[in-house]
Every structure is written in structure tokens, then in C-alpha cells.
């Protein structure tokens, strides 16, 4: 079949600080590349069409829905996922705040929210509730009603000051 004969493309990229060379089908999304090629499954699929934010990753400092980016597009770029947030010394303050504030129920949306919220706090250490709600508008959560997520982000922001 023609579509199966498409050649894989060699991609050099950095995932959570680790530089790597991978082979990717040119039609495969970054989400699938992370999950199937590299084998890290913390980044989740909720819709595969850019409307839920469960697949949010940080690409060179910008948050993107990884289901809308091709794997081949990350050549030479830095990708950060939820797996890159904690260090051997412990959790990122946002992760800690999500646990303390019970900001997750089922947890499927949590990686996306954490990556989004980290990008916010990296640039704005003390956002207002309104600003947090605006920033997180691209991430769906069906379990929590967002209340505790907003509180956790706000708690982490003050903590990190």
C-alpha cells in the first residue's frame, strides 16, 4: 500500500532535556511520537483534534496541543512533558499543590493542566484567578469543576515566589 511505503524521517530533538535521534513516520503527530515511538505515556489523548488540552506539551517555551503538531516538526526543538516536571529531589511545586489541594479526581487531564500551568508560572509568578482561568481555558476537566485546579495553581504561584 502506497501510504505504508512512506519513508520514516530521522528527527533529532530534545525531550525533557535528553537529546535523542528518532525515526518518525511523517504523518504521525507529536502526541503519537511521544507515546508510541519514544514510549512515554504521561501525555494523554482526549480528542486528537485540539479541543481538550490533555495532550499539552511545552515546545520551545510555548504550550501546544501535541495532537496538532507533527512528530517531524520537533527537529532541533525542545519538548517538555509532564514527565520532565519533577526532579530527583522532588515534585515541582505545582505537582505538590495539585496533590495538597485535591486538584485531580480521575487525573486524566492532570498532565495537560500541569504543563499549561507551569508555562504560565514560568512567565507570571503571581497571576490573578481571572488570569489563571483564561490561561487554562484550553484544558478541559470534566471531574473537578476547576475550582480546586485554580486554587492549586494559585497556591503554587505564591509558594514559588
Amino acid at each position: 500500500m502506497a501510504e505504508n511505503k512512506v519513508k520514516k524521517v530521522a528527527v533529532n530533538t530534545t525531550i525533557n532535556g535528553e537529546e535523542m535521534d528518532i525515526l518518525v513516520d511523517p504523518y504521525v503527530s507529536l502526541l503519537e511520537t511521544l507515546r508510541e515511538v519514544i514510549g512515554i505515556t504521561g501525555t494523554k489523548e482526549g480528542c486528537n483534534d485540539g479541543n481538550c488540552g490533555a495532550c499539552t506539551v511545552n515546545l520551545d517555551g510555548r504550550i501546544v496541543d501535541s495532537c496538532l503538531v507533527l512528530g517531524v516538526e520537533v527537529e532541533g526543538k525542545n519538548v517538555e512533558t509532564v514527565e520532565g516536571m519533577a526532579t530527583p529531589d522532588g515534585l515541582h511545586p505545582l505537582q505538590q499543590a495539585f496533590l495538597e489541594e485535591a486538584a485531580l479526581q480521575c487525573g486524566i487531564c492532570t498532565p495537560g493542566f500541569l504543563v499549561s500551568a507551569k508555562a504560565l508560572l514560568d512567565n507570571e509568578p503571581d497571576p490573578s484567578e481571572e488570569r489563571i482561568r483564561h490561561w487554562l481555558a484550553g484544558n478541559l476537566c470534566r471531574c473537578t469543576g476547576y475550582d480546586k485546579i485554580v486554587k492549586a495553581v494559585s497556591k503554587a504561584s505564591k509558594k514559588s515566589k
Binding site: 507515546r35 512515554i40 505515556t41 504521561g42 496533590l99 495538597e100
Partner: peptide, 23 residues
């Protein structure tokens, strides 16, 4: 009381395995 849930660490780090994550 409000202890941290036991499965919470896996869920904030991306380690938790959901339906699609099995290989």
C-alpha cells in the same frame, strides 16, 4: 482529615497507566 491520596504521585508525574497506555 485531608491526607494526600495514595495514587496521587503517579497521577501528577504521568506514571499512572490508563486504558490507552498499555503495551
Amino acid at each position: 482529615t485531608r491526607p494526600i491520596r495514595h495514587d496521587g504521585y503517579d497521577k501528577v508525574t504521568g506514571r499512572a497507566q490508563y486504558g490507552a497506555d498499555i503495551k
